[in-house]
Write a protein that binds this DNA or RNA. Sequence first.
RNA 1: GGUCCUGUGGCCGAGUGGUUAGGCUCAGCUCUGCAAAAGCUGCUACAGCGGUUCGAACCCGCUCGGGACCUCCA
Length: 489
Amino acid sequence: MNQPLHIYNTLTKTKELFKPINAPLVGMYVCGPTVYSDAHLGNCRTFTSFDIIYRYLLHLGYKVRYVRNITDAGHLEGDRDMGDDKFTKKAKEFALEPMEIVQKYTIGFRDIMRLINNLPPSIEPTATGHILEQQDITKQIINNGLAYEANGTVYFDVDKYAKLHNYTELTNRKLEELYENTRDLEGQSEKKGRLDFALWIKAKPEHLMKWNSPWGVGFPGWHIECSAMSHKYLGYTFDIHGGGMDLQATHHTNEIAQNMAFCGKKPANYWIHTNMLTVNGQKMSKSLGNSFLPMELFSGQHPLLSKGFNPIVVRFFMLQAHYRSTLDFSNDALEAAEKGFKKLKDAFATLNKLTASNESSVNIKHIKDGCYAAMNDDFNTPMVIAHFFTIVKIINAAQIGNEKLTSTDIEQIKQLYKNFIIDIMGLQVHTDSMNNDQTLNQVMELVLELRQQAKLNKDYTTSDLIRDKITNAHIQINDSKDGSNWVLK
RNA sequence: GGUCCUGUGGCCGAGUGGUUAGGCUCAGCUCUGCAAAAGCUGCUACAGCGGUUCGAACCCGCUCGGGACCUCCA
């Protein structure tokens, strides 16, 4: 539109002009969930952030291939490169096949994504579906002399790699300090260097998910899947690689190393990292036990919640903060978001009832430019929302005649709403289901009529009785100049 | 311990070297039989201490908080 899109690149720690390698094509890879348990709200925030990025790129006219993997194998539990993988552990616990675990949580994850209105990615590859690709890359890295096999396990040779390339590019850490601060683990004597990590891991006999390989029976290490799948679907170097900040130091650092070792090319030009969702200032995570499950949030079944929240309200709540800031989660914050969102929604409902004026007292284009400027400045959704609240003010003022909107203004606002609220931010306003219940509609029609009669007779005892009783049934009656109406609470 | 990030009004949260973020709460008002809902108006903050500057919440230094990563994590 006006000024071009700038993206904050973790690689350079600056906002950079976005220049796709092959416009209008854009390749974007985002590290997806490990499906060994329910996705929590923190996970949702990351994928919602990337959904906005995806949607905005689409809106700008790019043809985006958005790849987000499903990790269904290989992630290790506890001490690194040792022990059971998460799927094996869970499968044993519940006497299930690992793929039953995978199936259950994959479906659950997709349900949540749909509820929170995240578009499905273009490709959603699984680790288990790409074992051969992972082995191929591993072989190539061995051939290139940057990995070695020891007793059925293949390790990436970080020492050797660091002499050729900048291993800590993504974090700016000093290699010596990494060495100092990395724990030496027992039973890891087969590793040459302390920082070496596994590309392929020898499976113990009791291990459930394992595959044949040139190095014996085993399973892939926990970084190689992303290298394999991003390369397969997006090529040697693609535009955007994303993920949560907690993946930056280890997972993404190793991913870059793997790709460089494999083909000499960086996987991506722009690295985008989303910040964490916190609870009382602390990162929400499974290991800390302070997770909120999306379903708990939607239903209100959680000790810290006073009620359930619509998934779109949750989405709105998340978009009120910038993706690179931490966002603190609380019942109060959610309630504030709910009310704010309702205000936004209501204003656009009244927009449709507005009568156009012959003259205009507002400058809609100015606001539109502001919205694009905000999105082009590293996807600043809170700013876009602020602009929309000035539109809300204008709409409400126009309704009581304090502002004048021409039919062109009204059309422009509707277009803005469609572009930014619906298409880019995905804040789809579902028509409330309440009016779909014909029986209830008819009953309520009668109730309101009886109450209206009572009011006309100045029988306020009866009219208030009706209102109170019906409130107990979670139906709220509101009086206005043009009569009464009702909403489900 | 190391590396990095961060500290904004009652709450959540943007932002910038000199002009109102925004939302919620709260107060007042309008409307109203009373409520509720809705709308309008008001509430001017940037952890502390120094420094740079004509001017800093925004730049620099120190102090004190908070957090992330260095273990699996979005």
